[in-house]
Amino acid sequence: MKILVPIKRVPDPELKVKLKDGAIDLAGASWVVNTFDEYAVETALRLRENAESGESHGEVVVVTIGPDDAGQQLRSALAMGADRAIRIDGEDKALDSRVVAAVLAKVIEAEKPDLVVMGKQAVDGDANQVGQMLAGKLGWPQATFAATVELAADKASLTVGREVDAGVEYKTIALPGVLTVDLRVVAPTSVKNNITPASHSYGTGEGGPRYASLKGIMAAKKKPMEQKSIGDYGVDVTPATRELGVTLPAARAAGQKVADIPTLVKKLVDEAKAL
């Protein structure tokens, strides 16, 4: 099976947010693969491999829209085990979800994957839109916010555990389709593909995406990376969303430490009037 994984680079979410001229200051930002997209790469690799024999049962193609530097994030995904990459040249500032979905729809027309796996949202913009938009544009089914995924033995459908407000919903979609992944998809037994033995556990504890091995990093340097430009896809790339300004939230007033529980309850009653 062929799996396409669109990824986005984001400024390192561990670093403090700084503003400059009413926008996020990205000068000197350290860029990383969006956390959820890294999980999407991991999910795609688990879906196509036999984790115990190491045998591959399909192709994983990663794609990004970004400047030259964004090639580094594609290389990271290749080092994890993806087979090839496509970088579509574009500036982050000139993109919004609608444009990204339109370009990706064209990539999918050309690549014809059986499945698209992507992060449920990028941790910079937190929009949570592109997967659903892409599925809507293509007329494909969607399974969003996946915590667990099981590929049917005939590879014609996926059953996805989705953490919804009411509990966990199990949704089956026919392929081709769009899968977006949430945090728990990288837990040790969250992904089943009916190839890897069902008893297999990825890592220990909370699991997580795989690290690139030294061998993987060396191999990634030789894997193909195609360069494209947005213009190659013939879609209207005028963003409909314009950022007018960014502000930082007001810091919460400094709180107080109180000596014991009776004092706490007294303050909650008398001072905060919260009880």
């Binding site: 919004d96 979800s97 609608r98 979905a101 937190d126 929009a127 949570n128 839109q129 592109v130 997967g131 659903q132 938009m133 892409l134 599925a135 809507g136 544009k137 969607q142 969003t144 916010f145 989705r162 953490e163 919804v164 407000d165 009411a166 409909a240 969303t241």
Partner: peptide
């Protein structure tokens, strides 16, 4: 922006070719 709203509205936006602001 419930689990339903977040799943549904971007798909609606795609069908309407609409731009979207989330959450």
């Amino acid at each position: 922006a419930t689990s339903v709203g977040k799943d549904l509205l971007p798909r609606v936006a795609a069908l309407l070719d609409a731009g979207m602001a989330s959450d």
